[in-house]
Computed example of a mutant assay.
Amino acid sequence: NNHAQKDSYIRIGGGCPAIIGKKLFVQVQRIKAKNKRNTGRYHSKEFYLLTGKLVCDVCGKRMIGNLRFSGRSKTRLATYRCNTHRAMCNNKELNKDYLDAYIAVLIGERLKPKNLRKAVSKVNQQVQKFNSSYDKYHTDVLQQYNEVQDSLANITKAIEKGIFTDDLLQRAERLENEKTKLE
């Protein structure tokens, strides 16, 4: 019965004015389809490309990312929504995948190869700077960790020899706490 109703609908191509061009629409659809195939990554924290950049056009508050699983099939629904309570702002949610993909395509269209090379070069410089400072930090932490391990090993040896004092136990406890922080 429902199928017969659908068959009676009349479809008019281009009956509704398009908001975006056909080429851009096809690109966005491809990105959306690719995202659906890579569903495994959605078990980790969701990445919202436009966090802090979207403002509600109804109440002016920032829009935030929202992820939920709806229906019996637990369909993943990632959106941007107004940070104001629904009772105060009735703005609708925006599909996160569609909007992120749309913006990514627009950025790609506007970045000329020369500008893109400059942007990539700056990002690479920042990455190298971060990596070198991280490597130094990691080395320092590793050295502190090894020193704590050695101190704990010495305390264990002392206890095995029968030296068992409150000060020694308190020091061991402090070192264990420090070891946990360093880990």
Score class of each variant (00 low, 15 high):
1 N>R: 10
3 H>M: 10
3 H>T: 15
3 H>R: 12
4 A>W: 10
6 K>P: 02
7 D>G: 13
8 S>C: 14
8 S>L: 13
9 Y>C: 04
12 I>W: 00
13 G>M: 11
13 G>H: 03
14 G>N: 06
17 P>A: 01
18 A>I: 05
18 A>W: 00
20 I>G: 12
29 Q>R: 08
30 R>M: 07
31 I>Q: 00
31 I>D: 02
32 K>Y: 05
32 K>H: 06
36 K>T: 02
37 R>E: 12
39 T>D: 14
40 G>A: 03
44 S>Y: 09
45 K>C: 03
45 K>F: 06
45 K>G: 13
48 Y>C: 00
48 Y>N: 14
51 T>F: 03
51 T>Q: 10
54 L>I: 04
56 C>N: 01
57 D>M: 08
57 D>G: 11
57 D>N: 13
59 C>M: 11
63 M>E: 15
64 I>T: 08
67 L>P: 09
69 F>V: 01
70 S>A: 11
74 K>N: 05
76 R>H: 00
78 A>H: 02
78 A>M: 06
78 A>E: 05
81 R>L: 06
84 T>Y: 05
85 H>S: 15
88 M>Q: 07
89 C>Y: 07
92 K>M: 07
92 K>Q: 14
92 K>C: 07
101 A>F: 09
101 A>V: 05
104 A>K: 14
104 A>G: 13
105 V>I: 06
106 L>W: 12
108 G>L: 03
111 L>Q: 05
114 K>C: 06
114 K>L: 11
115 N>C: 08
115 N>T: 07
115 N>V: 10
117 R>L: 08
117 R>H: 10
118 K>G: 12
119 A>L: 10
120 V>Q: 08
124 N>P: 03
126 Q>E: 00
129 K>Q: 09
130 F>T: 15
131 N>C: 00
132 S>E: 15
133 S>I: 12
136 K>V: 03
141 V>Y: 04
143 Q>S: 10
145 Y>T: 05
146 N>K: 03
151 S>L: 14
152 L>R: 06
154 N>A: 05
154 N>C: 09
155 I>T: 01
156 T>M: 11
156 T>W: 14
159 I>T: 09
159 I>L: 15
162 G>Q: 04
171 R>D: 13
175 L>E: 00
175 L>W: 02
175 L>I: 04
177 N>S: 07
180 T>S: 12
181 K>Y: 02
181 K>G: 09
183 E>A: 15
